[in-house]
């Protein structure tokens, strides 16, 4: 029963992959070897497609594998498999968070967690900057920083940043404008 198997395999990934979408890749490599559902080379395509489409990367990968293994229901079931552990775990954690809200120990833990998560998100953002503003394959050559940096992107970044701060429009608006600019100026 392929659907049951799909659900179970992706349920395990949802249960054990800690750290977001990219953390699912080692699991998908293992699944390729153990199930024979898709070749290892398929994973590279999958990452490229996941990164070029909206939605959390981990979910995109589950849908893509599921679809290729079991068609439309396969994609749906694999995605459901990844999500079910999240729903269970977060529900349990939420209960405890609400129960202990106002508790000194818990407040103090969050006192440490909030600046930490700002740091983590900042670094995640910097990784995007690194891959999108610089031509990374040349980055070893720091003396030619002017050549490896994509100046047009830097200009767009600065313009976007000030527009966001000044006009407070919906993020979707800026994303749409950026997509059009990217196409017109061939980013």
């Amino acid at each position: 029963m392929i659907y049951l198997q799909l659900f179970w395999e992706f349920f395990k990934i949802g249960l054990f992959a800690v750290g977001g979408g990219m953390a699912t890749i080692p699991f998908l490599e293992h699944l390729s070897e153990s199930s024979g559902w898709y070749p290892l080379s398929f994973i590279t395509d999958m990452i490229a497609i996941s990164e070029s489409t909206p939605g959390p990367i981990g979910i995109n990968m589950a849908t893509y594998v599921g679809y290729n293994v079991g068609g439309l229901p396969g994609g749906f079931i694999a995605t459901l498999g990844v999500v079910v552990p999240s729903i269970a775990i977060v529900t349990i954690v939420s209960r405890y968070m609400e129960k202990f809200s106002g508790n000194r120990l818990m407040d103090n833990a969050f006192y440490g967690l909030r600046p930490a998560v700002i740091g983590l998100i900042l670094v995640a953002g910097l990784t995007v900057v690194q891959t999108s503003f610089f031509h990374v394959y040349q980055l070893a050559d720091f003396a030619r920083l002017g050549e490896v940096l994509d100046w047009r992107k830097l200009v767009l970044f600065v313009l976007m940043f000030f527009a966001i701060r000044k006009f407070n429009k919906h993020p979707i608006f800026y994303i749409a404008v950026a997509a059009v600019i990217g196409i017109v100026f061939q980013f």
């Binding site: 070029s52 953002g125 999108s132 992107k153 940043f161 966001i164 800026y174 404008v177 950026a178 997509a179």
Partner: peptide
């Protein structure tokens, strides 16, 4: 798709910077 994503990734960085 590639060009649009080039623009979008810059925008996502600016949005995150502003949110942070």
């Amino acid at each position: 798709v590639q060009h649009a994503l080039g623009g979008i990734s810059v925008c996502v960085c600016a949005l995150i910077a502003s949110t942070l």
